[in-house]
């Protein structure tokens, strides 16, 4: 029997990462001081007109399991909110925008105010109640 040390090491590191992954994925993190952004995202950048109250910009990719669920969730949340627009963007074909916004994994959802300023983002399938309260908190 060889040593178990490498196995224990790999499992310990992976478990630590896994607990961090589970804790952080889907959490809506508020962007501090969105006023400090020079300019908000423009319709030209995201390909659609901004919502009159806010916009949910979802970045997806082909090899992403939770992207489908995220799309369904955000479609559902925005269904009865005509002043919120949801757009689903293929990250791979918008790499320039992806780099500029520092999107590292999919799905990543940005919550924009009516001026296109990012007020929050969620990496991973977002938690429904957190998206709803972030949208409710948008100042008009």
């Amino acid at each position: 029997m060889r040593t178990l040390a490498p196995l224990a090491f790999v499992l310990a590191i992976s478990a630590a990462y896994g607990f961090w992954y589970r804790r952080t994925r889907g959490r809506v993190v508020a962007k501090k001081a969105p006023e400090s952004q020079p300019l908000g995202l423009t319709p030209a950048q995201i390909g659609v007109e901004l919502g009159t109250r806010g916009t949910l910009v979802q970045f997806s990719s082909a090899f992403c399991s939770p992207c489908r669920a995220t799309r369904a969730l955000l479609t559902d949340i925005t269904a009865d909110q005509p002043d919120i627009v949801h757009v689903d963007i293929d990250a791979e074909s918008h790499l320039e925008l992806v780099r500029k916004l520092d999107i590292r994994s999919t799905p990543t959802t940005l919550i924009l105010d009516r001026n296109g300023l990012e007020i929050g983002r969620a990496v991973g399938a977002p938690k429904r109640d957190q998206v709803i309260s972030a949208l409710a908190a948008i100042k008009l």
Partner: peptide, 30 residues
């Protein structure tokens, strides 16, 4: 070890390897 870590994370935490890796590869190569 790397293959084991990915398999373990998938089994235990429903880790999505494509979500984390694919865009980084696309960003680095294009």
């Amino acid at each position: 070890s790397f293959a084991l870590a990915a398999a373990f994370l998938n089994a235990a935490f429903n880790f999505c390897l494509g979500c984390e890796l694919y865009l980084l590869i696309a960003r680095a190569t294009n």
